[in-house]
Amino acid sequence: MTEHQQFLAERDKIDFFIQKGFRIQSVNEHLDGATVEFVHPNGDVTEVLLISNANARKYFSSLLIKQNPIGK
């Protein structure tokens, strides 16, 4: 899988939860990338993704900024 295909695959997984109304609840960065925890607005369902691709890690952080603008 090329880097770009890997990006698309990880982005799709992120988008899947975002489209269902999930929000990013927490991010844990580590040697293998980032573990991103999503939570449903109802607060009863959480989902976890391991995001390793560099562009996908940019992608979820851009979504996080959109979701929770700091100082803006």
């Binding site: 609840q25 940019k58 952080s61 996080l64 900024i65 929770n68 700091i70």
Partner: peptide, 8 residues
């Protein structure tokens, strides 16, 4: 990016 990640 780091500011928002640290915030969450």
């Amino acid at each position: 990016r780091q500011a928002v990640i640290n915030a969450v």
